[in-house]
Design a protein around this nucleic acid. Structure first.
Length: 486
RNA sequence: CGGGGCGUGGCUCAGUCCGGUAGAGCGCUGCGUUCGGGUCGCAGAGGUCCCCGGUUCGAAUCCGGGCGCCCCGACCA
């Protein structure tokens, strides 16, 4: 930190900026246990808004919530071969309880596929019992070696959807449907554009047949995997005997999907929109969308101005705008301005004695475009009337700005690993190349450039003229996206 | 688990080389003042100097051992 007040600038040290801003925006704090975090009210409020929006979308697509237990028998995790290989190193295991060593160790869930499909096996007999479309909001634990607030902590909050279907096609449809839900949520709510696509085999979920992903570009031009949706095929149903009788009376294994997003999204929001003054919370996610800062000298002024602030808050509430009045008396207005900017509140409304006389307010948007006026002096009623649409417009501006930023740092038509590396070493960003599908090429790129294959992008993101040569030489089978990633 | 750094009021740190009564800024409390971008003044509270052992008349400082944290690499939503 340069001093006690200003944040490290992003251009100076993005990583330090992130760490500071998360703490100083009071999103989260380090817990006494290494690698786990406390989510503070401001951060949790953002997460709650994310949860609400996602939950509505899940319900709209026919899902219900349920809850499965935290502890999973070790033998369950070990049942699916790839699954256990993927998760074993990061399991936290309960070996003792009730003062005795347990006969079978219990793992603290790193994800719930095993226990959920074991239960589905009990519940499903016939094709009439399918599909099962459940979601759960839960905490999970993965013992990570290097942790960062929100981006990677040992324990994190997430949702995991788990479905079972009668056919491969139906499961595939579901997998893509939920990927689409994620994309829509990330764009419309977090204002964070993503590239969706298919993961390569080396990057897919341990136990999945196919993994689809949402990849977002952070301001340091690294990729953040923001959400994944897996087609699990019959891998788990076979291990947990999740079978059903078809219409024809034959016994078949069900087809599963799972999909999840986590509190990592809060980190994504921070790194997508934040600036040197603090975080920027998109209006739809902001626990407070407007903060009213009263300005006064004397006690009678204070009474009048705070009274007006309260009144405005109520009028905004009638229009669905979440408003907070900062009437703390021991801070002067400047201190409050800095604090709320750091916390990313979309709009600040200043009301002072001069405004009271003129029946006006001063409205300041958290982010102003170059050339745009920062302070708007508006008649009070106009400000109240217009805030809903101004919030909406700000939400859209944030998405557009982030999209423009991503496009400005996306490189297409790159032909060689050398060229790829040069881009990553200088400017960074998303790099599109051809790929033969050969895992050795993938491995070589990883070693030589530290970039990973983020995905084989969906149609919406492919180049107009797809590359015909593989970045490692030879013929390209797919166009793929590379980036250094979180 | 390898490489580097650090443990001193709530926070950020100085003091450690060269042993001699524990400091600063910010924050906090009270009073006053100020309030349209981090007001200012006065008064105050607050520390087993990470832990254990050793050396010494005397250890935050020197020596030995331990613990913890942060950063950089190998695994990962």
């Amino acid at each position: 930190m340069t001093d006690d007040k200003a944040l490290t600038r992003r251009s100076e040290d993005f990583s330090a900026w992130y760490n500071e801003v998360v703490l100083r925006a009071e999103l989260a704090d380090h817990s006494p246990v290494r690698g786990s975090m406390v989510i503070r009210p401001w951060g949790y409020g953002i997460w709650e808004n994310m949860q609400r929006a996602l939950d509505d979308m899940f319900k709209e697509t026919g899902h219900e919530n349920a809850y499965f237990p935290l502890l999973i028998p070790m033998s369950f995790i070990e049942r699916e071969k790839e699954h256990v290989a993927g998760f074993k190193p990061e399991l936290a295991v309960v070996t003792h309880a009730g003062g005795k060593e347990l006969e079978e160790p219990l793992v603290v869930r790193p994800t719930s596929e095993t226990v959920i499909y074991a239960m589905y096996a009990k519940w499903v007999q016939s094709y009439r019992d399918l599909p099962i479309l459940l979601n759960q909001w839960a905490n999970v634990m993965r013992w990570e070696l290097r942790t960062r607030l929100f981006l990677r902590t040992s324990e994190f909050l997430w949702q995991e959807g788990h479905t079972a279907h009668a056919t491969d096609e139906e499961a595939q449809e579901e997998t893509l449907r939920m990927l689409g839900v994620y994309r829509k949520f990330m764009e419309d709510w977090i204002a964070m554009p993503v590239v969706t696509g298919l993961k390569s085999d080396s990057e897919k979920f341990a136990g999945a047949v196919r993994t689809y992903t949402c990849e977002a570009m952070m301001q340091d031009r690294r990729a953040l995997q923001a959400g994944t949706s897996h087609h699990l095929g019959q891998n788990f149903s076979k291990q947990f005997d999740l079978t059903f009788q078809t219409e024809k009376g034959e016994e078949e294994y069900a087809w599963n999907t799972s999909w999840g997003v986590s509190t990592r999204l809060v980190g994504g929001m921070v790194m997508t929109h934040g600036d040197d003054a603090g975080i920027v919370v998109p209006p739809r996610l902001a626990p407070a969308q407007v903060v009213v800062v009263p300005i006064y000298r004397k006690d009678d002024q204070r009474a009048a101005v705070v009274g007006k602030a309260q009144e405005i808050k109520e009028r905004l509430a009638e229009r669905g705008v979440r408003t907070r009045v900062d009437d703390r008396d021991h801070l002067n207005p400047g201190a409050k301005f800095y604090e709320w900017e750091r916390k990313g509140v979309p709009f600040r409304l200043e009301i002072g004695p001069r405004d009271l006389e003129k029946q006006q307010v001063v409205l300041v948007k958290r982010v102003t475009a170059p050339g745009e006026d920062r302070k708007h002096f508006l008649p009070e009623s106009q400000a109240v009337e217009e805030l809903p649409s101004r919030l909406q417009a700000f939400q859209e501006e944030l998405l557009e700005r982030a999209r423009a930023e991503r496009e400005a740092h996306s490189h297409r038509g790159v032909k060689s690993i050398g060229e790829l590396n040069e881009i990553l070493e200088s400017e960074g960003g998303f790099v599109y190349t051809g790929w033969s599908g050969d895992p050795e090429v993938e491995e070589r790129v990883k070693e030589e450039t530290k970039a990973t294959l983020r995905c084989i992008p969906d149609a919406d993101f492919r180049s107009e003229s797809p590359p015909d040569t593989c970045v490692g030489g030879g013929k390209a089978r797919w166009e793929v996206l590379w980036a250094r990633a979180y």
